[in-house]
Amino acid sequence: TTTLTYTDEEEARKAAEELKRRGITFTYTKRGGTWEIRIK
């Protein structure tokens, strides 16, 4: 499992869109002031 952490929502959203485009499965979690993208 790879976890990407972002403090900028815009960056996190761009990363999530890129992963979706590649067909990669991930979970997206907001934790306080950070956003976590966990790639399975």
Rank of each mutant, 00 (worst) to 15 (best):
A15L: 06
K40T: 15
A15S: 06
E17S: 09
A16L: 09
K30I: 08
T7W: 11
E10D: 12
I24Q: 04
E9K: 06
D8Q: 07
T7K: 07
T29K: 09
F26P: 01
K20G: 06
Y6I: 02
G32N: 14
G32P: 05
T5P: 02
K40D: 14
E9S: 05
E18F: 09
E11N: 06
R38K: 14
I37T: 00
R31F: 11
I37S: 00
D8L: 08
E11K: 07
T2G: 08
E17Q: 11
G33L: 12
A12W: 10
I39A: 02
L19R: 00
I24S: 02
A15Y: 09
G33V: 09
T29S: 09
I24V: 11
A16Q: 04
T27A: 05
L4P: 01
T5H: 10
E36N: 03
E18R: 07
Y28N: 02
I24P: 00
E17F: 09
T29I: 13
R31S: 11
W35A: 02
R38W: 09
I37W: 00
T25R: 12
E18Y: 11
A15H: 06
T3R: 07
G23I: 01
A16E: 02
G32H: 08
L19D: 00
R22H: 08
L19Y: 04
Y6A: 01
T3P: 04
T25V: 13
T7S: 09
Y28R: 02
R13V: 11
R31D: 08
L19K: 00
I37G: 00
K20Y: 11
T1E: 14
T34P: 02
D8H: 08
E17W: 10
E17A: 13
T25N: 13
R21P: 01
R38Y: 11
W35V: 08
T5Q: 08
L4N: 03
W35H: 04
E9D: 03
R22Q: 14
G23N: 06
E18M: 08
T27R: 04
K20R: 14
E9I: 05
T2K: 11
T2S: 09
R21L: 11
D8I: 10
E11A: 11
T7N: 09
A16C: 05
G33Q: 13
F26E: 00
Y28E: 04
T2N: 08
I37P: 00
T5S: 08
R38V: 15
